[in-house]
Simulated scan of single mutants.
Amino acid sequence: MIQKDKKFVPVMLMPFQEDGSIDYNTLDNLVDFYLEAGAGGLFANCLSSEMYQLSQEERLESVSFIVKKVNGRVPIVATGTFEDTIENQAEFVKAMYATGVDAVIVITGLLAKEDDSEETFRANVEKLLALTDDVPLGFYECPVPYKRVLSADFLGQLVKTGRIKYHKDTSLDINSVRAKIVATKDDESFGLYDAYMAHAVETLKAGSAGLSCIQGNYFPEMVVWLCDNFDNLEKKDEVDQVQQFLIDNMDVMHDTYPVSAKYVLQKRGIAIGTFSRTPSKLPDENAKKQLDILLEDYQVLSEKIGVLAS
């Protein structure tokens, strides 16, 4: 499912109506927004989708909706493990795969407790693989409930099984990313996608399959542009400006996320509400002012690099 060209895979937002129910009309439009921006795949039912605030039925229903809407145009991955026994997690992995996704994502921090040993974690991973038949899988070092980072050697072993197609890296460590890329380089069907945009260009140059970051829920066109141009020597100055923009605005894009991303998309003309089932809220007018400045700065940058911004 992974192509050789660098791809941006959005961690999809979940739009809600004011009564808290999923807004499927807006979700339909949001899929179009990502694809028209040039996304090379979609990560559904993820932390940005408020997956922990969804019921099992909502998780399956929303992913099925996205799969039907996309209709094979790009690959789709979706989380399929939540806090439960390994046996029950395996059953839900199979149920998620039945929605038609290309691979089911496993949350590393849900396969062992934070104080469990690496040996316990690895044993539970092997058990999950054994219980999920031939379902293609991926890993996500999700920061909630805690972040368990895969070692390069273990990821390399797993990829050699032929079952592992995707890895979302949140190690925040470029040396760790490089080691994982080296350990998995022999399997062209596997792709590592980095979430940490402070070293986005370094990650792409190191050989990652692409990027999968929350910044793409503000400005997906910019992340696609970076994937397309990171090694273009004629555009080195513009690439450096984009990388610096990502570094300079790391905090403002994280502070009240995902509500902040929904707010910016509203300002960009996307009909999405800012309701969230998470505790994330826009706390005051100052936060909105900072996001307005972010959008203005992006619009200036987009003109410089030749990306059409609405």
Rank of each mutant, 00 (worst) to 15 (best):
Q290P: 00
V224N: 04
G38D: 09
E114Y: 01
A287D: 02
F139H: 08
D173L: 12
S310W: 01
F245S: 08
I214P: 03
G80V: 14
A39E: 04
A200D: 02
S62I: 04
T108L: 10
H254P: 06
P136C: 11
L137T: 12
I181H: 00
L54T: 06
K127W: 09
T99L: 05
E202S: 12
P10R: 02
M250E: 14
F190G: 04
I2F: 09
I181G: 11
M222N: 01
Y257W: 06
V70N: 03
Y24S: 02
F190P: 01
K180D: 12
Q17D: 11
T274H: 08
G210C: 14
V104C: 06
G306A: 01
Q244A: 13
T203S: 15
K165Y: 14
E202N: 14
D284G: 10
D186L: 14
V125G: 02
D228K: 07
F230A: 05
K205Y: 08
L295Y: 00
F154G: 12
L30D: 03
F230D: 00
L155N: 10
K236M: 13
I272K: 01
K7I: 13
A95V: 10
T256N: 11
V101A: 11
I247A: 09
F8A: 03
N217E: 01
S151Y: 08
K180G: 05
A209N: 04
I2W: 05
C142L: 11
V182Q: 14
Y218S: 02
A198L: 15
A112T: 07
K185I: 01
D19F: 05
D133A: 13
D115C: 11
K113R: 12
Q56H: 13
A198S: 15
S280N: 09
T26E: 04
S176W: 08
D186I: 12
A37G: 03
G41V: 04
G273Q: 02
P220N: 09
V223L: 11
T81E: 06
T132D: 01
